[in-house]
Design a protein around this nucleic acid. Structure first.
Lengths: 350, 350
DNA sequence: CTAGTGTGTGGGAGCGCTCCCACGAGGCAT
DNA sequence: ATGCCTCGTGGGAGCGCTCCCACACACTAG
């Protein structure tokens, strides 16, 4: 026995000495197959064997080696959250945070890993394409898709389970979760109409993004229903940024100095609009009522606090994750599309 | 040859038919070893072989199988960004976004994957501990550490390369990247002193967090240097939240109605303080000057816009990632500690 | 001539798991 | 008794890579 002690570090010590399936099997007095069955929840295991294995696992602190499992199953047990970030939106809007929270919450008691991939440049986009084509994730969650983004098309082609937040167009073939943008916008404009406003302008987001289009459509629909539609001078185009909101507001005031309300397709743009209105000497909401969209943190801090359309962002994140998990686990994948209701949060600005 | 066509799907089709090392080797007319050497940039390859391999890789669209590599090297080529999220900070502050951006930017031309792990509950914390102990990532980036958080201690024990943003205490043993919180606070208070303020209060963050302590220390230091230190009535404790800021401000006004300035350890708390000051009929900055910390998006939208101490958050993210990559790749790991300068952004509130 | 040194290469072994085949034990009908 | 299920089980094969040993070949030195 004594010579065993002087034997140099044997094979058992390799790799930090973390226990393997085989070690568990040995301790439990069963074969590798049985341990594997216990871990993967197969019903074909006797109670006696199961208990022995579970105890051995606890005793050794065994954790399965993910790479080994991936190698044989070619499942990776991880999904990617892809955020194209050509705009600076990520830093200014809590949107992504809430999505991340929702997704993460839904994944919490799965053993799915969440990979975060920001895409800034075309070079990074190419890398991502290679990455996805190599099937290094089981599924993809994608945020803030522009209509001309090539990634969703790629996802379709390589048959990668994926869920978008927001659709690219009205007939999005991929699964998606979206807020009822049109409905929210319509609700906001109706609120302005009830207040007695009649010359209601809008500041839109970039119209190559479906949410921006849908919000514009909701705005138009509400006005048409009230018999007030058709005045294109009341539509100011912007890009979801604060400075864009400022410029669009200046344009609107130039074209239609008599406007009495503005529906902005984002809070950030509404904040810009408020600045311009103040500079122009208009009181909010007495002269011009203002409504934003997103109900983000800045809505509570503008002067006056902003009435805004709230989207259930965290729930959208949770739903995305849920849909993706279903799509990943199922054989015959049905694409799913979910639209969640929005809600008007009334504050002082309208 | 004709019978080959009716052979059922053979082994070559398995796993979606993605090409393997072996396929590349066959096409290039070399052995597996040589292909592996080319991929891993070994110098011991002839130019002829290298070219043949590179062409074969391009032709087949070969991408190495990460799991297979991980299995043998026990490197995972991925790092985790851990965000404890007991507070609601994640949703309200762009801090995390900017950190994420910085980290992601630094990782962009590495082939490191970024795993995002939010920790809400103790159960999730335990899962994380198991996860980390199983060495499923090469390194850990950790944000927003409370002094009593058990995770950093675990990281130390299992000798996991890791970098914190912000230290737990003055003698943090792990690597970290921090902003010069004390310096920034001192700068802010000096600015108030230069304005002629003499009864300068502060609203602190939770004092179990080092940044909160450091900002308080900077505040005290500036006052001492001006011979104005020692008045504990001027210190209001809060917790980095808006409502906390409101309550602390009320307390301060109650104790010291004559105060003429407040340095708040976060913008969110400053926003709360501003509300209370307005309700109390104090003008900002004429009666009471206010300075925040973080220069977050809300600083630009409060009324009046908030003078605030800016931290280079995105750069902190980049630096964290860089330090971690060094720590992961090096053998003898030296812990590194970097403190980045802060900057005062002057707006209307002080 | 032999011995020695180095450089590029091929391929065996093996990482830790899952999949699947084969096998023994027990139950039930014939 | 024999046949034929089913159920639980053990363990071989193999996933795609890296590591490393052995070997061929080309030199240079003795």
């Amino acid at each position: 026995m004594s010579h065993a002690a002087q034997r140099p570090a044997g094979p058992a010590v390799r790799g930090g000495g973390r226990p393997t399936l085989e070690a568990v099997a040995a301790l439990a007095g069963v074969g590798r197959g049985t341990v594997s069955r216990v871990i993967n929840g197969s019903p074909r295991v006797s109670d006696r064997a199961r208990e022995a294995v579970e105890q051995a696992i606890a005793e050794l602190g065994y954790v399965p080696n993910r790479a080994a499992r991936t190698l044989v199953t070619s499942r990776t047990d991880s999904i990617a959250l892809v955020i194209p970030e050509t705009e600076t939106r990520l830093s200014s809007e809590p949107f992504f945070n809430d999505i991340i929270r929702g997704v993460s919450a839904e994944l919490a008691d799965t053993d799915m890993q969440l990979l975060l991939i920001l895409v800034r440049t075309d070079k990074e986009r190419d890398r991502l394409a290679t990455y996805l084509a190599a099937h290094r994730v089981d599924g993809v969650l994608m945020v803030s898709v522009h209509e001309d983004d090539p990634i969703p098309g790629l996802l379709e082609r390589i048959d990668m389970p994926s869920v978008l937040v927001g659709r690219r167009s009205e007939l999005e073939p991929l699964s998606y979760v979206d807020a009822d943008n049109a409905g929210g916008a319509r609700m906001a404009v109706r609120h302005l109409l009830r207040r007695g406003c009649t010359r209601i302008a809008t500041v839109t987001g970039p119209l190559d993004m479906e949410p921006a289009r849908a919000r514009l459509a909701g705005y138009r629909k509400a006005l048409e229903e009230a018999g007030l539609g058709g005045d294109e001078d009341l539509v100011g185009r912007a890009d979801f940024t604060e400075s864009g909101g400022r410029e669009a507001m200046r344009g609107l005031l130039g074209r239609r100095p008599d406007l009495d309300a503005v529906f902005c397709a984002s809070d950030v743009m509404a904040a810009g609009a408020l600045q311009v209105l103040r500079e122009a000497g208009r009181r909010v909401p007495e002269d011009v009522a203002v409504i934003g969209f997103d109900d983000s943190i800045i809505a509570r801090h503008t002067d006056p606090p902003l009435t805004s359309v709230r989207q259930p962002i965290e729930e959208m994140g949770r739903t995305m994750a849920r849909l993706l998990l279903e799509e990943v686990s199922e054989e015959g994948r049905a694409r799913r599309q979910v639209v969640l209701a929005t809600e008007l949060v009334v504050r002082a600005s309208a």
